[in-house]
Nucleic acid binder design. Structure first.
Length: 533
RNA sequence: GGCGGCAUGGCCAAGUGGUAAGGCAGAGGAUUGCAAAUCCUUUACCCCCAGUUCGAAUCUGGGUGCCGCCUCCA
């Protein structure tokens, strides 16, 4: 089985064959750093993170480059609005980007070039295009001449002759007057008075938007790369222009595979900056949605399809993540060890059933990253583990349960979930970004008492445990007296005051867990002794 | 006007020729004083019409509806 990917360039799904066996070069269009990242970025970069993780897991040596566009009109506007500088705005948003991506468990790119750091390559490329007659300068601007480039429009399926009239009048008259063709686009823009600018053979100015990607791809990865990634909104004009520039300069195909992710809607409406209805990643996480919930939500749909963010959808994903989380957690609770396996190491010896599930997972991922189908396998793998988790949670003693098949199942499950899909316990609880304290969405319960669990000192913790224990004792007595109103009242008190939940198990034993408690407290009426599992 | 995409159960969403994965929600049952968790069982004539085929959600033609891009945008 080989990986099959839908290539925008050919509009077909075909086998992925890298240029060099065993190696994959990927360029992913990054962000313009004038603001915080929004859900569209999250969707896109989660999808590409999974592509990358899957390739790595399959044994490829992947080089992943993603740019920062840190020269741009909108950054300038933002800087002017806040009395700051372009560099300051960029720096701040780059830091935010890094934090947001880490929070979502998105692997950092191998290299992240910036436009400001690539000016040499950009100027060289423009010069080359000019020398080849593919570009012309006009009043300090330099434009790419689309008519000089055969094949312009091949990515987006546009025909220059047909499109010409439709495009008229879409750009400012001034700029229009300098262009020879409406689709010609700026490679270099002359500086306007008061703007920061960079020196160039054409006078002071700054690069156009598209040229930086062409220059960076070439500088970082070479003339032809394996995979070029981006949002569907970039197909035209950005990627079309990128192809034109690069291929006019090198005479080689820019990328063998062009992959584009579908757009994000919010409650059925297109999300866009111009409509002002975008939600930042931070705002969503701050609202109590866990990073892994967001990740699961994104991966439940195919990356090429539009994705509608709704409160209901996120809630469903949160419940789904709870299930996966329980299954991930159970092995750790039982002290099981992760296997350091990957597809490249060859399959570990698996039971027949597990081997089938593993190969189904691979088949799904091979089919243009069908994460939805892959997740179905993951949920199937998790089912018996959830059963184990359920028994553990309700206080049943299964410490001795070292069933080999279950352990193996857990190891496979963890491997696929964490390594390939990036759905990870550690990422949910450990890797903290702003506003991402809780691994579970239900952790955002009333009272906010949960937050104290990490800061409380030992004495305080003992005090709380003792109080909880006393309440458990009283509740046990109330149950014995069949005074269920009081018993329920105590349950409510524990939730309200400490965010602690109670689980009754056979034998009248009650376990209190979560919230302000660092360790579970249990009460056994037959023993009257405290235990902390 | 040009290019492209999508229409599957209450919601989300796979499936691209052999009688419909998975998640959420719901129902019934086991367990429970009640909860929680878990387990079992259960819920679809795949937008419409015509055609191809032994057989279609899946292919072809037509229709209807929705959406994206064509302007900065992941």
């Amino acid at each position: 089985m080989t990986l099959r990917l839908t290539n925008t360039l050919t509009r077909t799904k075909g086998s992925f064959v890298p240029l060099q066996e065993g190696k994959v070069s990927i360029y992913c269009c990054g962000v313009t750093v004038y603001d915080l990242c929004h859900l569209g970025h999250a969707r896109s970069y989660i999808a590409w993170d999974v592509l990358r993780r899957y390739l790595i897991w399959r044994g490829y040596q992947v080089t992943f480059v993603q740019n920062y566009t840190d020269i741009d009109d909108k950054i300038l506007a933002r800087a002017a609005a806040e009395g700051s500088t372009m560099a300051a705005v960029s720096e701040r948003n780059i830091a935010a980007f890094v934090a947001d991506m880490a929070c979502l468990n998105i692997l950092p790119a191998d290299r992240m070039p910036r436009a400001t750091g690539s000016l040499e390559a950009i100027r060289a490329l423009i010069g080359e295009l000019e020398a080849r007659g593919a570009a012309y300068s006009a009043d300090g601007d330099v434009y790419f001449a689309v008519l000089k480039h055969a094949g312009y429009g091949k990515l987006s399926g546009r025909d220059l002759a047909e499109q010409q009239e439709n495009a008229a009048g879409r750009v400012s008259d001034q700029e229009e007057a300098r262009k020879r063709h409406p689709f010609d686009f700026a490679l270099w823009k002359a500086a306007k008075p008061g703007e920061p600018s960079f020196a160039s053979p054409w006078g002071p100015g700054r690069p156009g938007w598209h040229i930086e990607c062409s220059a960076m791809v070439r500088e970082e990865l070479g003339d032809t790369i394996d995979i070029h990634l981006g949002g569907a909104d970039l197909i035209f004009p950005h990627h079309e222009n990128e192809i034109a520039q690069s291929e006019a300069a090198t005479g080689q195909p820019l990328a063998r595979y062009w992959l584009h992710n579908g757009m994000v809607n919010v409650e059925g409406e297109k999300m866009s900056k111009s409509l002002g209805n975008f939600t930042t990643i931070r705002a969503l996480l701050d609202s109590g949605i866990s990073p892994m919930t967001l990740r699961l939500f994104v991966l439940q749909a195919h990356y090429r399809k539009p994705l509608d963010f709704t409160a209901d959808g996120l809630q469903a994903a949160a419940a789904g993540w709870e299930r996966l989380r329980a299954a991930l957690e159970v092995g750790e609770r039982l002290g099981w060890v992760r296997a350091s396996a990957s597809a490249a190491d060859g399959p570990a010896p698996l039971s027949a059933e597990l081997a089938v599930q593993r190969s189904r997972f691979i088949a799904a991922m091979d089919d243009d990253l069908n994460t939805s189908a892959a997740l179905a396998e993951l949920f199937d793998l998790a089912r018996p583990l959830r059963g184990l988790a359920g028994r553990l949670r309700s206080g049943e003693n299964i410490e001795g349960s070292q069933d080999a098949e279950l352990q193996q199942r857990w190891q496979l499950f963890v491997e696929l979930s964490e390594q390939v899909l990036g759905l990870s316990l550690g990422a949910a609880a450990g890797l903290k970004g702003p506003g991402a304290e809780s691994g579970t969405d239900r952790g955002a319960a009333p009272g906010g008492a949960a937050a104290t669990s990490e800061s409380g000192d030992e004495a305080q913790q003992q005090q709380i445990a003792a109080t909880v224990y006393e309440l458990l004792r009283r509740r046990s007595q109330a149950k014995a007296d069949k005074n269920y109103d009081l018993a329920d009242d105590i349950r409510q008190q524990l939730i309200g005051n400490f965010n602690v939940e109670l689980y009754d198990k056979p034998g009248g034993i009650t376990i209190a867990n979560g919230g302000s408690l660092q360790a579970a407290v249990s009460f056994d009426p037959s023993r009257h002794s405290e235990a902390t599992p």
